Amino acid sequence: MSGYGERRRSQAERDAITVEIGYALFSAAFAAAVLFGAAAGPALLFELPSTVEKVSLRAGLTLAPLVFVVRVVSVLVRFRNGAQPSQPGRTSPDS
């Protein structure tokens, strides 16, 4: 079943992928919730004109899932491209 160029991942690599997926989902859910609260919160808390309330709720319901997907994809693509420090907490000598 293994194709050309494929190799088995070590346990550490599988753990890193699992942690990164969890981070992507958690941070995306948090960002979407904050954006929804900012966009739709005033409509839910205050009595606003009907059109403003509808637009605010629709904006929150439209933007929150979009932000969620964009955040998950951006975190996972960055991880896939190897934008991880080689030694966490350390910088290169010429920085």
Score class of each variant (00 low, 15 high):
Ser95Cys: 08
Arg8Tyr: 03
Leu35Gln: 02
Val75Arg: 14
Arg80Gln: 13
Thr91Val: 08
Leu63Ile: 11
Pro49Met: 05
Pro42Trp: 01
Glu13Arg: 05
Ala12Arg: 11
Ser50Thr: 13
Leu63Asp: 03
Tyr23Trp: 09
Gly41Ala: 08
Glu6Lys: 12
Leu61Thr: 05
Leu48Asp: 02
Arg78Cys: 11
Arg71Cys: 12
Gly5Asp: 11
Val70His: 02
Met1Val: 04
Leu45Ile: 09
Arg8Phe: 05
Gln84Glu: 13
Leu57Asp: 01
Arg71Lys: 14
Ile21Ser: 00
Thr62His: 02
Lys54Met: 12
Tyr4Thr: 12
Leu25Phe: 11
Asn81Gln: 14
Leu61Val: 07
Arg7Asp: 08
Gly41Asn: 08
Ile17Tyr: 01
Pro93Asn: 04
Val52Phe: 07
Ala40Gln: 03
Gln87Arg: 12
Val73Met: 11
Arg80Pro: 00
Asn81Ile: 13
Arg8Gly: 02
Val52Leu: 14
Arg58Ala: 10
Val69Tyr: 08
Phe46Trp: 08
Asn81Met: 14
Leu35Met: 11
Val75Gln: 08
Leu66Arg: 02
Ser56Met: 13
Val77Glu: 10
Ala39Ile: 10
Ser50Trp: 07
Phe30Pro: 02
Val75Phe: 00
Leu63Arg: 01
Ala40Tyr: 00
Gly5Tyr: 01
Leu25Gln: 08
Val34Ile: 15
Leu57Val: 12
Arg71Asn: 14
Ala24Tyr: 00
Ala83Thr: 08
Val77Arg: 13
Gly41Glu: 03
